[in-house]
Write a protein that binds this DNA or RNA. Sequence first.
DNA 1: AGTGAAACGACCGTAGA
DNA 2: TCTACGGTCGTTTCACT
Lengths: 160, 160
Amino acid sequence: MTTYDRNAAGKPAHLDEVSKKIIEQLQADGRRSYAEIGKAVGLSEAAVRQRVQKLTESGVMQVVAVTDPMQLGFYRQAMIGIRATGDTRLLADRLAELPAVDYVVLTAGSFDILAEVVCEDDDELLTLLNSKIRNLEGVTSTETFVYLKLHKQLYNWGTR
Amino acid sequence: MTTYDRNAAGKPAHLDEVSKKIIEQLQADGRRSYAEIGKAVGLSEAAVRQRVQKLTESGVMQVVAVTDPMQLGFYRQAMIGIRATGDTRLLADRLAELPAVDYVVLTAGSFDILAEVVCEDDDELLTLLNSKIRNLEGVTSTETFVYLKLHKQLYNWGTR
DNA sequence: AGTGAAACGACCGTAGA
DNA sequence: TCTACGGTCGTTTCACT
């Protein structure tokens, strides 16, 4: 599943300190054992496992592999600001279908949509823009921000 | 470590099909056992373990917990486009130090920097913008794109 | 929700092709 | 770089609190 609704699981989750610590442990290393986490947070292995299962099932957290595009041969990344007419949700669906697009967000402001793309090179980026994105129904104009240097990238949203 | 250099580990990594499959397995579930992955890709448990270790050490991949800001009480996200003078790398360092900033990228285009922020509410966002970001040395103007709906969010960059 | 205990399975180091 | 194997540790289930 590539597209998801952040509101799907409902509202807050008001985690206690122990669950926050468990999440921190898994943010540092997603393969850390439940037993080791238990030692760090002062809980039995079984209790940690139950909490992790709940956190995962409720969508608060997931443990996944993240990869570095550069090392996989994708040397060109960019953010595309898009201005559009009509229902931007439909347009967002079309954008999300493109394999090179790894991030789509509907925004308020001078762009209606922001889309991040991952390309092998400038050639692919140019083709993507001209032959795919700018052809989509509703797109009135785009602005491209080529990445010069990715400086900070956190996955631990929300625990700060 | 919150800031990292994507070029740190050098250039390509030309993975074979087996390593790509291993990464796919861990993208689906970061806690899947080496033995189970081995069955899926046709390799012994030890071989999978060695490959995962190499992929992790070389920075091609890492297994981590990712969380949903909404469910942790951060209801307002936004992308801030920043125009600046001087060395934007220094400014990016200052931005990266702010806990609410989870993403900073130096760009070419009508913005010099794009920064994603995660806030509890509009109040915090407003304070962040006015009292923190716009005060930073070198910032000449900002443009804020408040997130209305996060539509697609991939962590599996590069394997497409 | 949590603990503890026993059976099972995964993980890790080492040896060898 | 892979497989094979044994010791160790983690995980799972279940009965209990």
